[in-house]
Amino acid sequence: MNPLDEEWESWKTTFEKKYNSPEEETIRRAAWEKNKIYIEDHNKQYEQGLTSFTMGLNQFSDMIEGESPCGCMNKKTTQPN
């Protein structure tokens, strides 16, 4: 198992993540990896004094774009005039 696989498995254990299918796990893993890269890039900027805070992986790190912590999708709605 490579280090990224080990980190993924450890993260899932820490946050008690279970997925309904291999397909869902693949989607969540891709989101987690994308967020991990974003966080690592941000923290490099912090080390260079370019930002004032650090970030880390948490229980929401496997969320896909547009999803909110409640498990629902954010939708833009238009209001009638």
Results as ranks from 00 to 15, higher is better:
Asn2Pro: 07
Asn2Met: 01
Lys36Gly: 05
Gln59Gly: 14
Lys34Ala: 07
Leu4Arg: 12
Gly49Phe: 01
Pro3Gly: 02
Gly71Met: 02
Trp32Glu: 05
Ala31Thr: 06
Ile64Asp: 15
Ser52Asp: 09
Gln48Met: 03
Lys76Glu: 11
Gly56Lys: 15
Lys18Ile: 05
Pro80Arg: 15
Lys75Leu: 10
Glu67Leu: 04
Lys75Thr: 10
Asp41Ser: 06
Gly56Met: 12
Ala30Tyr: 02
Thr78Ala: 11
Glu23Asp: 11
Ser52Lys: 13
Gln48Thr: 02
Gly56Asp: 13
Met55Arg: 15
Tyr19Ser: 03
Gln79Ala: 04
Ile39Gly: 01
Leu50Cys: 04
Gly56Pro: 00
Thr77Ala: 09
Arg29His: 03
Met55Asn: 12
Asn2Leu: 08
Gly71Pro: 02
Glu25Arg: 05
Asp62Cys: 06
Glu67Cys: 02
Met1Lys: 04
Glu67Ile: 08
Thr54Trp: 12
Asn58Val: 04
Lys44Tyr: 03
Thr14Asp: 12
Lys12Leu: 13
Glu33Ala: 02
Glu33Gln: 03
Ser68Arg: 07
Thr77Met: 11
Glu40Gly: 00
Glu40Lys: 00
Glu25Ser: 10
Ser21Ile: 08
Ser68Phe: 05
Thr51Ala: 08
Glu47Val: 01
Glu7His: 14
Leu4Gly: 05
Pro80Thr: 13
Thr26Met: 13
Ser52Val: 00
Gly66His: 02
Glu65His: 03
Glu23Gly: 01
Trp11Arg: 13
Leu57Asp: 13
Asp5Gln: 12
Lys18Glu: 14
Ser52Pro: 07
Lys36Phe: 03
Lys18His: 12
Tyr19Asp: 00
Thr78Gly: 03
Gly66Ala: 01
Arg29Cys: 09
Ile64Gln: 15
Trp11Pro: 08
Glu16Tyr: 11
Ile37Val: 04
Met63Trp: 10
Glu25Ala: 09
Glu16Gly: 10
Thr26Lys: 15
Glu47Ile: 05
Glu24Ser: 02
Asn2Cys: 02
Met1Ala: 01
Glu6Thr: 12
Ser21Tyr: 08
Gly71Thr: 06
Ser61Lys: 13
Arg29Asn: 09
Glu23Tyr: 12
Met63Tyr: 14
Asn58Ala: 10
Lys76Asp: 10
Lys17Asp: 11
Trp32Tyr: 11
Gln79Val: 13
Lys44His: 00
